[in-house]
């Protein structure tokens, strides 16, 4: 068996008395798309931040292709793990091209001196970086907008640009934190294809997502995190069928569960309320 791309062992994160992530073991293998789901507040993003070095895990280690990662974001990126953010964090006042060029930071070396002296090496490196960045922009379909400011892109394209920026660091593993949040169905479809295309480049993908159809379509394996602990892990079919998962999302039936009759009553009342509200809005429109 080959070494996994990512291996988190016994990762625990405590904030004071609160344990956000409790001894989670987690692996991502080469060429795999893994989904990480769980209800709000389950600790998914905290776990992500532990993986990428934004948080120093209280216990446990994270290793990439067999080597343990130091808990420093820039070193994690350098090692080969790139990420996107749940709420888009582009460099809003830089152009699309510049955003991707910043992503190339770890793969280039030119420091202050070479920038000041502008030797042939500098020009060559700048040109190579730009070519690579343009390739990525072509890949995600934003090449025509290279000189736009990132802030002026529509929402869906900002998400794409964030992915391109992450890919620019030539990662072996890409972490996507809710890549389809706020997207319409078409954009979600496009993102799905994009993730497959990224996997086809040989990059493993780990994604947090709330859109279940998206996750189950994409993932080879899905892991469920509930209250900081890993509940289930397996193929989408297995996870979908697991009752504990449904319970975690919807809550367990409690005693005095409303009977079917009651549920029907509520439904009827809601339908009636809907009907009156629609007519009243119609009246306003006229």
């Amino acid at each position: 068996m080959t070494t996994p791309v990512l291996e988190a062992r016994d990762v625990t994160m405590r904030f004071g008395g609160l344990t956000a992530v409790r001894s989670v073991d987690f692996t991502v293998n080469e060429g795999e798309i893994v989904g990480l789901i769980g209800p709000n507040g389950a600790g998914k993003t905290t776990f992500f931040n532990c993986l990428t070095g934004l948080y120093v895990p209280t216990e446990g280690t994270v290793s990439y292709k067999g080597t343990v990662l130091p808990p420093k974001p820039h070193l994690v990126t350098k090692a080969g793990i790139a990420r996107t953010f749940q709420n888009i964090r582009l460099f809003a006042n830089m152009t699309v091209l510049e955003n991707v060029l910043v992503g190339r930071h770890t793969r280039t070396k030119e420091g202050l001196w070479s920038a000041l002296l502008r030797g042939p090496g500098f020009k060559k490196a700048e040109k190579a970086s730009e070519e690579r960045a343009m390739e990525l922009l072509e890949f995600i379909g934003l090449a025509g907008k290279r000189d736009h400011l990132a802030r002026n892109l529509p929402y869906g394209e900002q998400r794409k640009l964030e992915i391109a920026r992450a890919l620019a660091s030539e990662p072996g593993l890409l972490l996507l934190d809710e890549p389809t949040a706020g997207m319409n169905p078409q954009e979600t479809r496009a993102t799905e294809e994009l993730v497959f295309a990224i996997r086809d480049k040989g990059i493993a993908v780990l994604l947090i997502e709330h859109d279940m159809r998206f996750v189950f379509n994409l993932s080879d394996r899905v892991s469920v995190l509930v209250q900081g602990e890993k509940l289930v892990e397996g193929t989408p079919e297995v996870v979908q069928a697991d009752e504990r998962v449904i319970a975690a999302y919807l809550g367990e039936p409690f005693e005095g569960d409303p009977g079917e009759a009651e549920a029907a009553e509520v439904e009827a009342a809601e339908a009636a309320a809907d009907a009156t509200s629609t007519t009243s809005t119609k009246g306003d429109a006229q």
Partner: peptide, 26 residues
């Protein structure tokens, strides 16, 4: 010269969003 280079871009990136900049390997 400094502004228009890899280091200049990383300065601007830090100014724009330090967390994202470090996550990009800076």
């Amino acid at each position: 010269r400094a502004a228009d280079s890899r280091i200049g871009r990383s300065w601007i990136a830090i100014r724009e969003d330090e967390t994202a900049a470090t996550a990009m390997g800076i």
